[in-house]
Design a binder for these strands. Structure first.
Lengths: 340, 340
DNA sequence: CAATTTTTGAGGTACGTAAATCAGAATTTC
DNA sequence: GAAATTCTGATTTACGTACCTCAAAAATTG
């Protein structure tokens, strides 16, 4: 039988009230008595029944998700996943709220976090914009004891408790490795389409990609990066233009958004089909994979990221450990044969 | 505020006892009264507080995992994951027990399930051996209302509630696709190393692999399957033998166990390094991936499978829905660049 | 309509913890 | 050593549900 507070009281020779004071670190217990109780806790292997405690406290965990109002498929999907979690939350003693902010805007993010600080929720998740003022704000949140998880894009070496997202350098390396293997042997020119080099994830993916290519695939030449601002129209124009100027292009790595435009450009171009590796499994990348326009898609599972963020926030709020393996966000590689 | 049983009683104009009788389908309630209460439940959107209910019932979920006493790395890892879950289970009102059975032995599995039937736990997970007697036993368990999850290897079209494992045909197709792309253009001979064609997962992987190769990569010839019984020593001998007789082998697909033997055979052989695709990320496949002996590893995350099985069993025991996306077990593709 | 059976109400206890009050004990301070 | 202060114990209520008992009310039966 699992020991309860009563067992501890008996074993330590104190009253229930004292045990309660120790457990919830309320004042009014002498050091010696506290030690006695703590010893009994360890000895009996007591673990607080969280469900009962939450019931008694009438506690509900309130979490805030700060999300950019982006209109690309991935962000829309992410929103959806959070909304799904909200729909399920009634049964789980959690109340989740979404706060929308303009994308790539450090000030807006800081302002949103300022409101969070005032509201003092049980935890907050946000897509980091890597800027000094955001770091400073994160530090203030940490001081206020609000658990904090970065989502999709990290704020490394900061005071966040956890990052729910993929390792973008590894993702870029994986793309480079696949590209190299798919283009084995032959001299080849490869184009890279990014959203913006101002965003950390994109920089890191490019970094990983370039490193693998230059280290292991000297037969491949990478053209200067195209910055398509994650915009389908712009991306289409840029890719079409590049394909016209370099009809010999053998591969394209699209490490950001705007893949709809990329796909259109390739389909319209009068060139030999290049090897295409893109990120994020969406409606368009999925069908392009099926059609053979895209050869591989690297994906991060938005649903997993959201659920993981919630689990971690809850664990942090309770001071519980997380199961690291469960919270590792994988770099999913999809070929047309392993589509879910 | 979430409605409670009290709110329902008030709203339906009945007493708490009657609401309780309806909720827990106890006898002694007239049809009309029951209807009134049910209406109030729907109207107020009442959902039973599971935590409070379990507290009141003093309920602990007891689950049984039937695992084969195999000594390959994957099964050892699976055991470990279940043990990890057991270690964590105290906090989660679950009690998990492992029952060991001899591998690939339908009768032993049936006997173990018979014991399960007698014990009536809250759920059972097992690695299916696809045999008629196992199916019959599963049917009996279903009739007894015991939630049932197959793990790693499925019992399709049976009475199991859920399968926590990968789609092995898709895994084989993925391997075929990678092999085809890695060997692009050149005529090539490929060997396949399996454990046993009597096991469903292995048959399905081979089926998927062969289908992709014959449909899309006519340049590739597949040699007759080697059955290494998942045994490293036997596998080494068979692979070494094959490499001697076919020094031109360009690729090897290892769809079962015994990879340690495979790796040794390749390292010792005096041939051009073939493209190697294997299953399950273990100590040996991992380091072979790093050394470039293996080119890609397809993996199923045993930890995810175990946690998923437990979540599903719990949901089934409570009559709750599962989050399908969360329980889908991915076919992880590992190159040396995206190792966790 | 009386007797019987079924249905319902009222109330309590329990699960394990939180949180509060109040009285009494121990300790410290002067 | 009395007063003030700090600790501690005993007890109670509460959270939302389950489950039990007993009595009263309603419906059914003969």
């Amino acid at each position: 039988m699992k020991p309860t507070v009563h067992d501890i009281a008996k074993s330590a020779g104190v009253s229930l009230a004292t045990v309660d004071r120790v457990l919830n670190s309320r004042p009014g217990v002498r050091g010696v008595t506290r030690a006695k109780v703590e010893e009994a806790i360890v000895e009996l292997g007591y673990v607080r029944d969280l469900a009962a405690a939450n019931l008694a406290k009438g506690r509900t965990y309130s979490f805030i998700f700060i999300l950019p109002e982006n209109d690309n498929s991935f962000m829309i999907g992410l929103h959806e996943e959070v909304r799904g979690a909200i729909a399920r939350s009634s049964a789980e003693r959690t109340r989740i709220r979404i706060v929308d902010v303009p994308p790539f805007d450090p000030e807006a993010l800081v302002a949103a976090l300022e409101n969070v600080l005032a509201e003092k929720p049980a935890g907050v998740a946000f897509i980091a914009v890597d800027a000094p003022e955001v770091r400073a704000m994160a530090e203030r949140l940490r001081e206020a004891g609000i658990p904090m998880v970065t989502l999709v894009s990290d704020l490394p070496d900061s005071s966040r408790d956890h990052y729910a997202g993929i390792d973008n350098i590894a993702a870029g390396r994986t793309a480079g490795s696949l590209m190299g293997r798919f283009l084995i042997g032959r001299d080849a020119t490869v184009a890279v389409l990014a959203g913006s080099m101002l965003v950390r994830d994109h920089r890191e993916r490019l970094e990983g990609f370039s490193a693998v290519i230059s280290d292991h695939y000297s037969n491949i030449v990478i053209l200067p990066v195209l910055e398509g601002r994650d915009d389908a129209v712009l991306a289409e124009r840029m890719v079409a233009d590049t394909l016209r100027r370099h009809p010999d292009i053998a591969g394209i790595y699209s490490l950001g958004g705007g893949n709809r435009g990329l796909i259109r450009a390739i389909q319209k171009a009068d060139v030999k089909q290049p090897v295409v590796i893109a990120h994020e499994l969406t409606g368009s990348t999925r069908s392009a994979l099926g059609d053979g326009v895209i050869d591989a898609v690297l994906n991060q599972d938005a649903g997993h990221e959201v659920r993981s963020a919630i689990r971690v926030l809850k664990a942090k709020a309770d001071g519980l450990p997380v199961i690291a393996a469960q919270e590792r966000i994988r770099i999913d590689i999809f070929l047309k044969d392993n589509l879910p």
